[in-house]
Design a binder for these strands. Structure first.
Length: 286
DNA sequence: GCGGGCTCCTGTTTGC
DNA sequence: TGCAAACAGGAGCCCG
């Protein structure tokens, strides 16, 4: 699943292969990929045609390209989305959803998405906290890799919440970029339980868990970078992120790398949490 | 305003 | 062997 590190790899690819180019046409092959676009496929095509891509930017798991008219092309990869720069004569991918052609012959940009949780939209931008961002991103918090990320503000925000720690980590409005995989890995690193009430977190606890999230995503980014192929804007998972050093995620029944206790999986918000029952004590009061 | 549960979707895996 | 159910999960939306 593309989380922050994978989206950053894609952003770099878009920056290298698509910036400075001018869109000539847009073809939508699946309406669900543009379901968040007011006006649908025709509106997306109308807003993008003739526009030049100015800069590739990211906040958390949201990726966008600034256009030369102060609007933006916003992409979210969802669970299975990819942005690929492909030669025009390359056969269409099975799950190709949107195709952007340019007014040059350096390949087309393809949005490919098997499970269609992702999407592409052309949107207005707005000023938030001294920075122009797409309107649908206005409520998304800065991610820990953002130079302007405010750690102490995030620590305070977590401690004010009346919820459980993992829920808070997955909430993109406070701190963005952390998904299910990195939430579990971060909690394991600092020996905290996913159900720990955020109200009982000490400031050092909150700093440690955010520090761990930053650390694990930085490490994954370093690995994701190595799988980058200059021919593609590549986020195809298989090669890139299965050799990540995951301690607990997806490792039910395997020994905890720290203490050897079998990793446990529990249901959480219609998905899974992986954790070590020895290192991560269940909070007494919930 | 905030918290929490539901929903969307499809290929793969698991279980009977 | 074959079919059906479970599973994966980000984020918008709606309700209390």
């Amino acid at each position: 699943m593309p989380e922050l590190p994978e989206v950053e790899v894609v952003r770099r690819g878009v920056a290298d292969h698509a910036i400075g180019r001018t869109v000539s046409s847009v073809e939508v092959l699946h309406p669900r990929a543009v379901r968040r676009q007011p006006g649908g496929a025709s509106e997306l095509a109308a807003r993008l045609a003739g526009r030049t891509l100015v800069a590739a930017r990211r906040r958390g798991k949201f990726l966008w390209v600034d256009l030369d008219d102060d609007s933006a092309m916003l992409a979210h990869l969802g669970m299975s989305g990819q942005l690929l720069v492909q030669p025009e004569d390359r056969p269409d991918e099975k799950h190709l959803r949107v195709r952007l052609r340019f007014d040059d012959d350096r390949g087309e940009l393809r949005f490919v998405d098997q499970r269609t949780f992702g999407g592409l939209t052309a949107v207005d931008t707005t000023e938030v906290d001294g920075e122009r961002v797409p309107v649908p991103v206005a409520h998304i918090g800065r991610d820990p890799l953002d130079p302007r990320f405010d750690l102490e503000a995030a620590v305070g925000a977590y401690r004010r919440r009346r919820t459980e720690l993992k829920r808070a980590l997955l909430d993109q409005t406070v701190v963005s970029g952390i998904g299910n995989i990195y939430a579990d890995e971060s909690l394991w690193r600092v020996k905290l339980h996913s159900l720990r009430p955020t109200a009982t977190l000490t400031r050092p606890d909150a700093r440690r868990v955010l520090g761990a999230a930053t650390e694990v995503m930085t490490e994954a980014l370093a690995q994701g970078g190595t799988s980058f192929d200059a021919l593609y804007v590549d986020v195809h998972g298989e090669s890139g992120y299965f050799d990540r050093a995951l301690a607990v995620y997806g490792r039910e029944g395997e020994p905890c790398p720290r203490c050897g206790t079998a990793v446990v999986r529990t249901a959480f918000m219609n998905r899974s949490s992986f954790w070590c029952p020895t290192c991560q004590k269940v909070p007494r009061r919930r």
